[in-house]
Simulated scan of single mutants.
Amino acid sequence: MSVSTQRFTALDVFRGMTVCFMIIVNTPGNGATTFSPLLHARWHGFTPTDLVFPSFLFAVGNAMSFVMPRYQALTQGQVLGKIFKRTFIIFLLGYLMYWFPFVHWEEQRLVFNPIGTTRIFGVLQRIALAYGIAAVLIYFLNWKRALIISIFGLFLYWALLLLFGEPGAELTLHGNAVLKLDTWLIGSQHLYRGEGVPFDPEGLLSTLPAVANVTAGYAIGYFLQKKGNNFEALAKLLLIGCLLLAISYAWNLVFPINKKLWTSSFVTLTVGLDCILLGMLVYVIELLHKTNWTYFFKVFGRNPLFIYLLSEVGAILLNFFRVGDSSLYKAIYRSLFMLLGGYIGSFLFAITFMLCCWLVGYLLDKRKIYVRV
């Protein structure tokens, strides 16, 4: 196996892991009986689940470091066309996913989902915007300047939250600038309500620091390509990760780690952890050449956006179709998994759902079908 192929293997595995765990944490059989590490932190704080989404953004940037050099043979118009097209399609898919299946049950009859209350921002939308902004910055300014601008953006975001949040409550659920901007821009009817009140954890303003997850992923990908697969490069990667962890914990004292606000300390923490995790994968896959275990995750990594979208649409449909007074989702959990116990049953439901998504990815991979946007 060539060096370049191995690098793509490590990237596919890293990206595949993020998709795999995104599906697991998003589809528990019963949210009330979910193991705490598989739940997001309620507000300030951090759990393993909080690492999943930023890791996907990091992987997006890592993949860009292999793709961007190919753009040198294209005109500026062609490059921007590719970037804007991909950004638009991913954003649109995210928007349509939240509107889907376009109807809902209300007193045993189907009622159309009004477009006026459809959630506008979300996971795919954040991926689209963070990718688009990072790609434009890197293309026009090179990755070093883009990374510097992203770091500046982390401090700018901190300042914006302090300046435009409610005094004394700028980092609370009800008084932050992210909520204020989203409410002013699109209205509370278009916001996520999973917190019990209108608030979107993927709001527009908090996309600013998320761009740094992508540019950092690009920088690390570029670093590995230039330095090669050797212990010196891995040592530096691990040192970068440890340094970022120290910065994040120090920053947490004045700007708390918070996934739902995507605070700057959250960015440095997640990028630091991703550097360490990626370093571990590079060591095992590329230096030790232990690859027998990697295919499972490569299946996810080769069609990441498609499999993630499939998992979300699948969960939506299982909750939409009815079995008596219950959704098909709940009926399957209660009849097959709840008998194993609340927490174990909920976890095994999520694992089973993830494996079903993996099977689709496996069939696509065997047929060499790779869905690209």
Rank of each mutant, 00 (worst) to 15 (best):
residue 131 Y to P: 01
residue 132 G to L: 02
residue 104 H to A: 07
residue 127 I to T: 04
residue 88 F to A: 13
residue 75 T to N: 00
residue 120 I to S: 13
residue 86 R to N: 10
residue 101 P to Y: 03
residue 105 W to P: 14
residue 85 K to D: 13
residue 73 A to M: 10
residue 87 T to H: 05
residue 74 L to P: 12
residue 72 Q to W: 13
residue 70 R to H: 15
residue 89 I to T: 15
residue 115 I to N: 11
residue 79 V to S: 00
residue 127 I to R: 05
residue 88 F to I: 07
residue 69 P to K: 03
residue 125 Q to G: 11
residue 119 R to L: 10
residue 73 A to Q: 07
residue 80 L to E: 13
residue 76 Q to H: 11
residue 130 A to Q: 10
residue 104 H to Q: 13
residue 88 F to K: 01
residue 74 L to Y: 11
residue 99 W to K: 09
residue 126 R to P: 10
residue 98 Y to T: 01
residue 100 F to P: 07
residue 124 L to T: 01
residue 101 P to N: 05
residue 128 A to E: 02
residue 123 V to C: 08
residue 96 L to W: 00
residue 73 A to L: 08
residue 110 L to E: 06
residue 115 I to G: 07
residue 97 M to R: 07
residue 75 T to G: 00
residue 112 F to W: 10
residue 116 G to A: 01
residue 111 V to C: 01
residue 114 P to N: 04
residue 111 V to Y: 00
residue 94 G to P: 03
residue 108 Q to K: 10
residue 109 R to E: 02
residue 94 G to H: 03
residue 119 R to T: 07
residue 125 Q to C: 10
residue 113 N to Q: 15
residue 82 K to N: 09
residue 115 I to P: 14
residue 88 F to R: 05
residue 102 F to I: 03
residue 90 I to A: 07
residue 70 R to N: 13
residue 98 Y to E: 01
residue 88 F to G: 12
residue 103 V to F: 12
residue 133 I to W: 11
residue 84 F to I: 11
residue 79 V to M: 00
residue 71 Y to S: 14
residue 93 L to A: 05
residue 93 L to G: 06
residue 73 A to N: 10
residue 117 T to S: 15
residue 95 Y to G: 03
residue 103 V to Q: 09
residue 129 L to C: 13
residue 122 G to R: 08
residue 95 Y to R: 02
residue 78 Q to W: 06
residue 106 E to L: 02
residue 86 R to H: 12
residue 117 T to W: 12
residue 114 P to A: 01
residue 84 F to E: 11
residue 84 F to R: 01
residue 133 I to Y: 11
residue 76 Q to F: 14
residue 85 K to W: 15
residue 78 Q to N: 04
residue 97 M to V: 02
residue 74 L to R: 00
residue 89 I to W: 07
residue 77 G to T: 03
residue 72 Q to V: 15
residue 130 A to S: 14
residue 97 M to I: 05
residue 113 N to S: 15
residue 81 G to V: 09
residue 116 G to S: 04
residue 99 W to D: 06
residue 119 R to P: 15
residue 99 W to S: 11
residue 94 G to R: 04
residue 114 P to Q: 00
residue 116 G to P: 08
residue 127 I to V: 13
residue 120 I to P: 13
residue 123 V to R: 12
residue 101 P to D: 04
residue 118 T to G: 14
residue 107 E to L: 08
residue 113 N to E: 11
residue 126 R to W: 14
residue 124 L to R: 02
residue 90 I to T: 06
residue 89 I to P: 04
